[in-house]
Every structure is written in C-alpha cells, then in structure tokens.
Nucleic acid binder design. Structure first.
Lengths: 230, 230
DNA sequence: CGTTCGCTTGAACTAATTCAAGATAAGTGG
DNA sequence: CCACTTATCTTGAATTAGTTCAAGCGAACG
C-alpha cells in the first residue's frame, strides 16, 4: 500500500515498479499530531516527506509575526526535496493541521535513492520547477489582482484539490477559517468575511464556521477570470 | 574566457576544470539586441542560457496586459534550466534591455552535459531551489508589507546586484524607469515617483531620468527593515 | 526647434484595513 | 441539560494607503 501512495504522488507517478519498491522500503513512517510541526523554518533540511494521511500547512512567519500560508498539503503531496541539497535549511514551517502520517526519507537514504535511481533527480528538478511556476503565478496575482479575485481563485483551487461533493455543492473538506483564507490570499479576515457574505447572498457559496461549500462554480469562475457576469 | 564567465556564475562556480571546459566548449554564443527577446512565455523551453554581456528582464504579462517583473538579469546569471525538463515551456519572457550576449546550450547538448557530469543535476536542483526560496520571500513581502518598504528593499537589492560606486553614493548601473520599479514591486509608477521624491527630499537618494543613486544606505535599510529612524 | 518620453504633483476617488461591538456556534464542566 | 467560556464569524464606521486621472514640466533626441 506504500507503493500505491507513492504512485498517487506526482513525484513518483509512473516510475518503474522497481524504483517504487526501493523508495517504499527505504521510507520510514512518521506520525505528527494536529498542531505539531514536521519541521520549522530554519531547521536543517534533514528529511523528505510524502504525506500519507492528514493535512498540513506550509507557512512563513514574518519578523513582525504575521503569517503567510504558502500552501495547504494533503495526502500524496511530496514536501522537502530540498533535503537532497547538502547543507540546506527548510525555508518554511510545515505544520500538521490534523493528526497526520507521512512517509519520510532522511538525507542519507535520499542520496542513496537518488544515486541508484537517477530518474529521481530529474523528477526532483521537475517538481521544484513546477512549484516555482505556480508560485510565480500566485505572485503575479498578488501583484496585480484585487482581493475578490484572489479569493475566488483560492477557493476554486481548494475545491479542485480537496473538494467533497455534497447535496447542492462541493465542500472544501478541510477546516478552513476566515483567517486561513486571509493568510492564503494576502488580505485580512474581515475582508474575507465580507466577501464570502456577499457571495452567499448572491447564492454562489454557502459557508459556516471553518467551512465553505461552492454552489455555483461557473459564477465563481467568472469572478476569478473577470468574465462577463451575464 | 568562457570558463571565466562560467566560474562567476553560481551554477558553475567551483566545479572541476574538466566540467567547466566541457560546458564551455559545448556552448554556443547568441547575440540579442536591446528590446528583443531571448524567449517568450509559452515557448518550448529549448535553451539554457548564461548571460555574458548586457542586461535582460524576466517578466510575466497578465491576461489584461499588465506586466510584472520577476527579475533583472545581469552578466553571469544562469536562466532557463527548465530546458533540462523534456516538454517544458518557458513560464515567462526574457527580454534584453540592452544589446546582450549569452552562452547557450540546446536541449540535446544540455542532456549530454548533465549525463556526463552528474554534479550539474544537483546544481540545477540547488539553483531552482534557491530561486524558489527568494521568490517565496518576495511573495511574503508583497503579501504583508507596504509599498515604501518593498521599494526600499528592491533598491537595496539592485544596488547590491549592479551598484556602481560614485561621488556621494552608489548608482544602479542600469537604465531603470519609475515604471520598471513599479512593475518590480507591484505598485504604480506614480507611487514610485512620490516615494522617490520624498526620499530625495530627505537626502536618502538622488535620482533622475532612469537613474537612482543611493546616498544613505543606512537610512534606506532602516526603512526596509522598519528599524527606529533615529 | 518641436516632439517625444519620462517624471512630478495635485486632487479625487476607492479598495481595503483597522477598530469596535456584537452575534453565533462549539465545547466544557457543573 | 443548562450555564459558562471560548473561538469564530459578521457588520458598521472611521481611516488610510494607494490608485487613478489630469495637467504640466523638463530633459533627450531626431
């Protein structure tokens, strides 16, 4: 079942059976309780992780103490390939938001794997590059777009990532506070609350305590893409 | 002299003589006139570049036509390692802002180099990772900090990168319009102009047409870091 | 010498933040 | 089961940082 998990993860998907079993058998299992940290910003990058169960939050904290969420991590996400680089430090926090389990490889194991399966090196480059491109897009959004549109995009992304179909809509299957959405989109909890309220009045979403259900994806997409609101 | 250039570039710095000469002799030289593009967003990522002479701008353009500058590139900067990934597309534009020359490797050459010199694979991962971390920092800045502070940081970075000492200060050795600074910091040319004017009145900088000279680095740093303005 | 391009500055406007107060919902313990 | 406590969310009102628009200046350039 470990190899199943690895298959679902972009980093390992489609690799030779032999590579997968080698990786799977070299992995250790680590459990982290909700609220605890897999690692902290500034720690030596000692381990590479593939989340097996639970959810976690990648975030940075500013010198003034304001938090910025760089990503929400679910099962089959790979995190921390930076551990392949000798001497590197983690650039952000990875905090479990629920009780979580992850497969993990330490630096030495990772190096052995990379040496005996060179394709993993190219995969690592591919993964970091694609994250880089995503981050660039978010940067451009933040630099040029209004809060409402950024929030719309964030919700669409989350629905795509962890949406659970339900009567009358798709619910984001994560406890997600207004504050979290604010830190994810670079705004304040008040603006998020106001915007969600407006969308709820318009019948685009339904929402409650730490919960958002998307009812009218087409209209939210129209907001995200600035299409005519016909 | 090609190997000299490579040595000054992070990607190749400190590698074995043999690797450097292999890379240098496999490279082609490409000339691009000011205003022309090395590559455009969406083009197949066919070449890896190390800029030898001139300057260039990495930028994205929004669907609405607003430009965001992701970086300013000078001699000895490596760009486009994404060409090592089969099937990848360039995620942004690289436009020469002056007549420029670059060493370049096409995909096939790059693969041969990477295969015969495995250290280059790790270097690639290291380079992308470190750019990723930088971008994360800029993202956090954009999400949490005011324009003045972001502008201060941008100028300090540029001074560090391409500062030329001069009587009474350090000048950014690049034609740099207010508009460029705006696109670099996610604001408008008007706000940049007002902020620079205020700094000039305060004696922190001197500035003119497409030119900025930093006179009082300490005070600008104080603004960037929000230190007491004693 | 006139035109262009980049820069400055004022004035009006607006999106978003901040602060404050209260409402709602979810636990907690008696 | 109910009162108490705590955390999340909502909403109004005041404020502000930054944008947008408009007009004009001044240096560079053909």
């Amino acid at each position: 079942m470990r190899t199943d998990l690895l298959c679902r993860c972009h980093y390992f998907a489609g690799l030779a059976e032999e590579t997968l079993t080698a990786a799977a058998s070299a992995a250790q299992l680590r459990h982290v309780s909700g609220g605890e940290f897999f690692f902290r910003q500034g720690d030596p990058a000692s381990h590479f992780y593939v989340l097996a169960e639970g959810h976690a939050r990648l975030s940075q904290i500013t010198p003034e103490g304001r938090q910025v969420i760089m990503g929400l991590i679910g099962p089959a996400h790979a995190i921390g390939i930076i551990a392949a680089i000798p001497g590197a430090l983690y650039p952000l926090d990875l905090q479990a938001t629920q009780d979580s389990q992850a497969l993990t490889w330490n630096q030495r194991t990772l190096h052995m794997l990379l040496e005996s399966h060179p394709v993993l090196g190219l995969r690592a480059l591919r993964m970091v590059s694609s994250r880089f491109v995503e981050l660039q897009d978010r940067y451009r959004e933040l630099a040029t777009e209004r809060v409402e549109r950024r929030l719309a995009r964030a919700i669409l992304r989350l629905v795509a990532q962890v949406g659970r179909p339900e009567a009358g809509g798709v619910t984001i299957a994560l406890p997600l506070a207004r504050q979290d959405l604010a830190e994810l989109t670079g705004t304040t909890l008040y603006t998020v609350s106001r915007t969600l309220s407006a969308w709820e009045d318009a019948g685009i979403i339904r929402s409650g305590r730490e919960r958002v259900t998307l009812c009218d994806p087409a209209r939210l997409t129209a907001i995200a893409e600035d299409l005519p609101t016909a």
